[in-house]
Design a protein around this nucleic acid. Sequence first.
RNA 1: CACCCAUUCGUCUAGGGGUCAAGGACAUCACCCUUUCACGGUGAAGACACGGGUUCGAUUCCCGUAUGGGUGACCA
Length: 607
Amino acid sequence: MLCHANKYQISFIMEKKAVRVRFAPSPTGALHIGGVRTALYNYLWAKKHGGTFILRIEDTDQTRYVEGAEAYIMEALEWLGIEPDESPKKGGDYGPYRQSERKAMYGQFAEQLIKEGKAYYAFDTPEELDAARAKVEAETEGKGKFKYDASTRMSMRNSLSLDAGTTQQYLDKGEYVVRFKLPAIHRDIIFDDAVRGTVTYSTEEMDDKVLFKSDGMPTYHLANIVDDYHMKITHVIRGEEWLPSTPLHVLLYEAFGWAEARPQFAHLSLILKPAPDSYLTKQNKPAMAEKFLNVFLSKQPEFAENKDLLAQTITQLFQDVASVTSRLNPKKKDKPYKLALKAFLKKSMSGKLSKRDGDLLGFPVFPLDWNGDEPFRGFREWGFLPQAVLNFLALLGWNPKSEQEIFTLEELVDAFDLDEVVRSGARFDYAKAKWFNQQYMIKGEDSALAEMMQPLATAKGYTVSKEYLTQVANLLKQRVEFIPEFIEKGSYFFTDLDFEVVKEKEGKNLRKRVLNKWSAEKSATFLDLHQALAQLADTDDLEPAVDAFMESKGLGKGEVMPALRFAISGTMGGPALYEMMEVIGRAKSLDRIKAFVEFCNAETTVA
RNA sequence: CACCCAUUCGUCUAGGGGUCAAGGACAUCACCCUUUCACGGUGAAGACACGGGUUCGAUUCCCGUAUGGGUGACCA
């Protein structure tokens, strides 16, 4: 017996159709991380089958067009290394690849359906439609929805309800839309989804969707069917939000007589917001509470007068991180301000990952920086490596049927299968994203890391060679999670220490490990050590020299190393001491030791 | 409100009637390694939403309930 998931593969093999998939974003802003995953799965599926990965820009909504969005999408795909084979920029045999440039062809297909009685002209104004919706809503106490279908279409203004003369008058004015005419007899639309199996909808639930808008542009529904057909798309891999409109698309393929060429659908579950306990920690709880409250008040300023009470409430709600979500359910005795806050928090803390979440929750949700009206930082600028992002995203909603976690792009192509895409929504897990990044940093070439560090170092005003950065990368890469941390955490590689600052940051450790035990004798010892090291030849290793020194003075490592470490790097953490000293340079290191001794003397007032 | 989709450790997931006293990864904790911090290693803790069926047997199949998600535009 064949299970549904294999059927399409087999039929496709038998037909020997070349796989052609498209990623079809609309240029309404930056490319969301969920979109990136969709693009990736499309890419993987195409490459796995030696097929073609197409980028098509769906810019049929002129009002939502955002300048720079298309360039952003291209740059993001390029950064990630999943570039399309056919695209507006690259061209191809099935172009143009921007729907606005294919505008001329859609009208004829709308006309065709009208001629065949499968669609009709409609002249209702937006106001009239709003009124019709409002009326149904009022009659059903908000429970019902207006449907433009067989039951209502004859009472609306369209070419079915109006006589030919009136219809012509409207058409002459040029203000009309084309609506799809749902079949008169209801039936179930059944289609096979590569990730979900058999999905069933009844035409009874559907309505006469607009196919062609009054501005002369097609809607998504028309354009996507016409384009997929003409671009010979074999698999439509897209987000779950399209699942409910898929039966309409199925009907459209039938209406055009293209049912045989209908692509295989695969609907990907959405990426959800992370679990609250992953970003609410004991330390940041108060700050997060304030952040949430501010956003709430900016959205619902009418509750500003309740600010103190709200602050109290949110603190209470956040008290037990594990159960926040369940505490958010409304209760009868809740005051209006509390209900509003709960509703807001519930929406902010669950559901699909959205634009704003990055800002609010403190992690990137877009591949690259975006400098629009609402600017935000991308994975790239955050310091993520593209391969890490790809790897993380690939495994968020797909499993490779093995216990392998780290995959190169080639390995992903090889292992990927729509069959193993999971059906349920996956929560974004920032901690895991960080882990992947760290893994790729450790694996990464030191010189490549150095290259990425270079501009950041320059921005900080450090003038350092690539060779130097390469050495720093080598020492630090398993101790940092993002590229910028090389510069931030490793600042002592780039600039001399200010021990006053060290005292502020590391006061407790500094006192415990060094200052509390400091004495005139210690001071002298370290100056002796300084002297001993200064006399070393460049070819002599530091470690045996220090070891010998300690032995001669009868000192243990614990009495010497922590102080040296503070002297060199100003912190107890960090790479192996001697390697650090070699990279920073012996002369500089010795200067730091001397400065540190003086600092300790001053701190403990020993001379 | 209606329709569709989903539901295994905190998170991502494996498992699709007996081999599951449920496997892996992240996160957490402990130990080892170590001058420190990491990395690495070893280990601990941690899950089949609930209720009914079907069956000799159900985490796995069916039906309900609950919960979560999506959609319900002349937006995509």
